[in-house]
């Protein structure tokens, strides 16, 4: 490793650098965003997206994929805006039940050796259907404590930034630094080795899915705290956003190679990309297209950097 900056380091730097480049472009286009309130406004919706991305990351870490997280967050949002607001005990029980359901899904996928893509695809219908049953028409109200938390105005640094940093660091310590997290990640790298070392892959899968469910619940609650009401389709796009966020953040589809800090950065970058495009005054027809182009560009950069990465 004689090169001054190894490709590994460069690759790790790519997510924060692309976020920085995007921020600079936004500040340049719209200087008014470079303020406490501007940033608050820009980054508000990044918090629930980041939480959903972290949820997806736990699933990707054990070589699975969750195509239902968007529908799940929508369901949580509907429950939060109705039951949790009107009958807190019922709401809490329902949300705890959802986390348990996620753990159960992990067990089912592992025990029957099922493809997670298809199981979660099926679950996306289930979550969406339940959301429609809980809240047939858009509405509901956010519980006050969630509302006040999400609209907190701490001094100097806007709340979304604090929340993102705390989230990234907390999950980083949990998954990347702790001895427990090491075992969880190991299950993504070589499950057979874990089993041979006496660990239960079933328990690890259930733990990872439960963690995903837990962060999915947080995502839905945070979302309702911002929007104050919910509907059954509120977060459907989170499925694709969360996958893209993990990948943008340097995560990979197989092998347990993920990064919580990268995932949060990836999520924030995606959330900002939308604002950036509207500041560009792009023909609205091409807005989604440009979002796709940005995604391709960042990934292309990553590949260029990785090209130098050689096995020792």
């Amino acid at each position: 490793m004689s090169a001054p900056v190894s490709p590994r380091v460069l690759r790790a730097l790519l997510p924060p650098l692309s976020l920085a480049a995007l921020l600079i472009a936004i500040f340049w286009l719209q200087p008014r965003t470079m303020s406490y309130f501007g940033l608050n406004l820009l980054l508000n919706l990044a918090v629930p997206i980041a939480l959903a991305t972290i949820a997806q990351m736990f699933i990707l870490c054990v070589n699975e994929l969750d195509l239902s997280i968007g529908a799940f967050v929508s369901l949580v949002a509907c429950i939060t805006a109705t039951w949790l607001h009107d009958a807190p005990l019922l709401g809490v029980l329902a949300l705890a039940g959802l986390v348990a359901a996620y753990a159960g899904l992990g067990a089912l996928i592992h025990l029957r050796n099922l493809p997670s893509i298809v199981v979660t695809l099926g679950m996306s219908f289930v979550w969406l259907g339940l959301a429609v049953l809980v809240l047939p028409t858009p509405g509901g109200a956010a519980p006050d404590y969630i509302r006040s938390l999400m609209t907190l105005k701490p001094p100097i640094v806007p709340f979304p930034i604090i929340a993102s940093v705390v989230l990234a660091l907390a999950v980083h310590v949990l998954l990347m630094r702790s001895a427990w997290g090491t075992v969880l990640r190991g299950a993504g790298g070589n499950p057979q080795a874990l089993a041979r070392a006496g660990w239960s892959i079933l328990r690890i899968k259930m733990t990872m899915f439960a963690l995903a469910g837990f962060f999915g619940v947080l995502s839905g609650m945070a979302l309702v705290g911002l929007t104050t009401s919910a509907d059954a389709n509120i977060a459907l796009r989170y499925t694709l956003l969360s996958i893209a966020g993990v990948i943008l953040g340097g995560g990979e589809f197989v092998g347990g190679r993920v990064s919580p800090i990268g995932a949060v950065i990836g999520a924030v970058t995606l959330a900002l990309a939308g604002s950036f495009l509207s500041f560009l005054r792009l023909n609205p027809d091409w807005q989604i297209g440009a979002q796709g182009a940005i995604l391709i560009l960042v990934l292309a950069l990553r590949v260029l950097i990785s090209r130098g990465e050689v096995r020792r």
């Binding site: 001895a179 427990w180 990640r185 190991g186 790298g189 070589n190 080795a193 070392a197 660990w199 092998g255």
Partner: peptide, 22 residues
Amino acid sequence: GSLCPNLTVAENARISHKAISG
């Protein structure tokens, strides 16, 4: 081979030695 390729050498030691924690 029974190592996890995504972990470091030290982390792999932790996988098979449960006593290494805390």
